[in-house]
Design a protein around this nucleic acid. Structure first.
Lengths: 285, 285
DNA sequence: CTCATTCAATGCCTGAGGGGAATGAGTCAG
DNA sequence: CTGACTCATTCCCCTCAGGCATTGAATGAG
């Protein structure tokens, strides 16, 4: 009844992301006509038009947007199922933790030590994920747990435990008008240019095109030093402090949380044990 | 890399549920040899043995269990993606609400009235789902929202809003030793035979085989009248009260909640509006 | 206005592989 | 030992996904 093959979904997602049949086909390592036909098959099977194609541009219909969004989730779920099955039999499986380089608030060594002391400890593989895809690593089974930042990362489909709550600091150039203050408020910063963090749904704030788009703290710092933007970061992400920049606490900014996240339906002891160790270690710091 | 087709997953889930190739093949409307081959393909593709088959019995390996569990989720996600895409274009789409017959605590008419008064109200289709599968209706896109009972229904993958909190009542035969009490406690009932609700994960309680397996309140009432069990139900589910039975409040039982649930990643106005109307209507009752 | 460019759609062809029927082989009951 | 049951194997057919060559439409430059 559903009758929607994962390969077709992959094809569609590729086209929907590229909005270009030729490039998408190249990504998928198939020929363009095959892709065109596959998408048409998919459309006729669903009985819905997914793409609005003029002979010059390709655009998503609303049905296409829905399928892109939910299709990504579905593909994640399928990958996760395969990955979990592959690893399920392996009793010696390593625990895979995905973090952002420098994104551990100096808690990681303590967490690993606490975990290693547990009777059921396994080897821990540490993977590095970019700003946007650590959560996806967990969703599609490439990792078991992830260190994420609330409220920045999208936690849909994940459960989590908070490890630390921390304030945020504004990072300015020394010649900024606020640089001599000892602290600032959000109101002080209301008119400032803030970077747009790639892949972060910036809910609540005006959608206006503001600062430059950046993918991580290093890029943001670069842009700050160039005077193109300022940034408000969780305190731990502001480490190490750059000597040419000014760091000021933003006392009224909503706190950010460093959380340990895992797949919502993952009830393995492997994961529970690590979570317990991490909460322990974070709590006693 | 993943390379796991939904059809293969469906095949595997069918076999894993039936634990019998012949029956599973019949369910899938294909021949048995085709199914055997498909499962072997799947195993070799994943590089894991999923089923332990003697020539007389079929059993799941741990990898098989993992794939069954996560595969169900994945299939739900794929179905949901297809369904959402089909319906996305339709601006006149009805809102589909799935309930258990009698499981609305008399709130439904008020909710529907409140929703109908909204400017963006759509027609509401009411579907009936059994005890176990209302949540699945939402997960795989057959419905937009569901009335569920916490903490009984499995909310994995769903968001929800609580509509009412209600106590629970014990339902006894008039000749039961406690029938003359005006109320009871869980301690009073500790030794009683309670029914096993099909599809409900009875976390926390002893796994002992206790009462008869029942699927809904009607069956439970039948069993109570036969003296085979007693039941502790949310107050609203005990309606209508049967004249030949005794209903006693269980004051120290954890409250149950009637909740309105929807897919976690469903942010459509269609749903948000209905939820708002329902919370409104429930709050003012 | 014309020509070159860029893309998606079409038609035809091939080959991989999924599915069916018949058969084999292991297991258990009586 | 025999028959019933059940999963695996073999062989064959045939669909359908994908490649290639081409068409056709829209765009932009000169």
């Amino acid at each position: 009844m559903a009758e929607l093959e994962t390969r077709e979904l992959e094809y569609f997602v590729a086209v929907a992301e590229e909005l270009h049949f030729g490039r998408a086909a190249a990504c998928l390592a198939i020929a363009q006509p095959a892709l065109s036909k596959a998408i048409r098959r998919l459309e006729s099977r669903l009985g819905v038009k997914l793409l609005e194609r003029s002979s010059r541009h390709v655009a998503l219909t609303s049905a296409g947007e829905a399928l892109l969004h939910h299709g990504r989730h579905a593909l994640n779920a399928v990958s996760a199922a395969a990955e979990k099955a592959r690893r399920a039999g392996d009793q010696q499986a390593h625990l895979r933790l995905v973090i952002k380089p420098g994104g551990d608030a100096n808690l990681l060594s303590g967490i690993l030590a606490a975990y290693a002391g547990r009777p059921d400890a396994r080897q821990v593989d540490i993977l590095f994920g970019g700003a946007t895809d650590r959560a996806d690593h967990v969703r599609d089974g490439r990792a078991d747990v992830a260190l994420l930042y609330a409220p920045f990362d999208d936690m849909t489909g994940l459960d989590h435990q908070t490890l630390t709550v921390e304030g945020r600091v504004a990072i300015l150039r020394p010649d900024h008008r606020l640089a001599s203050r000892s602290q600032v408020t959000l109101a002080d910063l209301a008119q400032e240019t803030l970077p747009r963090w790639k892949g972060v749904r910036w809910t609540g704030a005006p959608e206006a095109e503001r600062g430059p788009e950046v993918t991580d703290a290093a890029e943001a710092l670069q842009m700050i030093r160039l005077g193109r933007t300022i940034a408000i970061l969780p305190r731990s992400l502001a480490q190490p402090m750059h000597p040419d920049l000014v760091y000021l606490p933003v006392n009224d900014a909503p706190n950010s949380e460093l959380v340990l996240a895992w797949a919502q339906d993952d009830r393995r002891r492997l994961v529970a044990s690590f979570v317990a160790a991490a909460v322990d270690a974070a709590g006693t710091t």
